[in-house]
């Protein structure tokens, strides 16, 4: 992993440029019958402030559990999570999390869904709603403020989700295959929107995906995880493609293809391994 390994973050060693520092993370689940399942093991990963890191790996490699550990929704079985140099305890208050599954409140309209994060933080409801409208405008949904989630398309719901998370101005943005269920065109539009918003206010981003092309097009750095169980980081690549980028255009660049070929050749073996394990009888 070259120079990417993270020094243990004990007293006095806090490096504040590191928004997220995961070191020696192991996450083990105990099944109903008492059997142990280790999702990830020995993961060292750091994300600098303002850096966009994409985490790619075959299905079931425990990418999401890393995000959950960073969010504080899950306590790792071993290892430490440090946020801006401070060990994480409880929920990560500086992180915003865009979930893979539907996470909007179905009983709230789009504008109320976006405003809620401010409201619970004590912002005056009128002001919260005004700012929520502003954010809906930024994600191109001004006309849909009063709609309920079920009246929006999948892509629109994701945009509301993005506004809901970003309105709280988190320093760290965690995204778990946020565009997974969308069609290819919508994914590109969403990707460009995400990059525009991120360019305006650079946050540390951990973006989990199984789509290598998407990862290369979006990120500053692509981290590849091996097949589970007990998956590890098997490699990482810096993506030096110039910014600002246009996702649909950047895919035509020779540099993009070269990177893609290089990373894919490393990932392929793991994907094959992942399939083989999935097909083996339990």
């Amino acid at each position: 992993m070259g120079g990417a390994s993270v020094a243990p973050l004990h007293a006095g060693e806090a490096r504040h440029s590191r928004a997220v520092a995961l070191s020696g993370i192991r996450i083990t689940f105990t099944g109903r019958g008492g059997e142990q399942f280790t999702a990830v093991e020995g993961v060292d990963l750091h994300v600098a402030d303002g850096e966009f890191v994409a985490i790619v790996g075959p299905t079931g490699c425990g990418k999401s559990t890393l995000l959950n550990a960073t969010a504080g929704l899950l306590v790792p079985s071993a290892g430490t999570v440090a946020i801006f140099g401070e060990p994480l305890s409880g929920l990560n208050r500086r992180a915003g999390y865009l979930f893979q599954a539907e996470a909007l409140f179905p009983w709230k309209s789009a504008v109320d869904n976006v405003a809620i994060g401010l409201e619970v933080a004590g912002t005056d409801p009128g002001e919260a709603r005004a700012r929520a409208r502003d954010w809906l405008g930024r994600v191109g949904l001004s006309a849909f403020a009063e709609r309920y989630p079920h009246q929006l398309s999948g892509g629109q719901r994701k945009r509301v989700g993005l506004a809901q998370v970003l309105i709280r101005d988190p320093k760290i943005l965690l995204m778990d295959e946020p565009f997974g269920p969308l069609d290819a065109q919508t994914r590109q539009i969403m990707g460009n929107m995400l990059l525009d918003l991120w360019n305006a206010e650079r946050k540390a981003v951990m973006f989990v995906t199984h789509d290598l092309e998407e990862a290369i097009a979006l990120a500053d750095r692509v981290v590849i995880m091996g097949a589970g169980p007990a998956s590890r980081i098997i490699g990482e690549w810096r993506i030096g493609l110039p910014r600002p980028r246009d996702i649909s255009e950047i895919r035509m660049e020779p540099a993009f293809h070269a990177l893609h070929r290089e990373i894919w050749s490393a990932l392929r073996d793991e994907v094959v391994k992942g399939y083989r394990q999935a097909e083996e009888p339990a």
């Binding site: 969010a71 929704l73 929920l91 208050r93 992180a95 915003g96 999390y97 979930f99 599954a101 539907e102 996470a103 909007l104 409140f105 179905p106 809620i116 994060g117 619970v120 933080a121 809901q164 998370v165 709280r168």
Partner: peptide
């Protein structure tokens, strides 16, 4: 209640009362 909605609510800073 969907666990995802619940996790989202907590990440958005909701207390038990919220």
């Amino acid at each position: 209640v969907s666990p995802t909605v619940l996790a989202n609510a907590r990440m958005l800073g909701m207390s038990e009362r919220h």
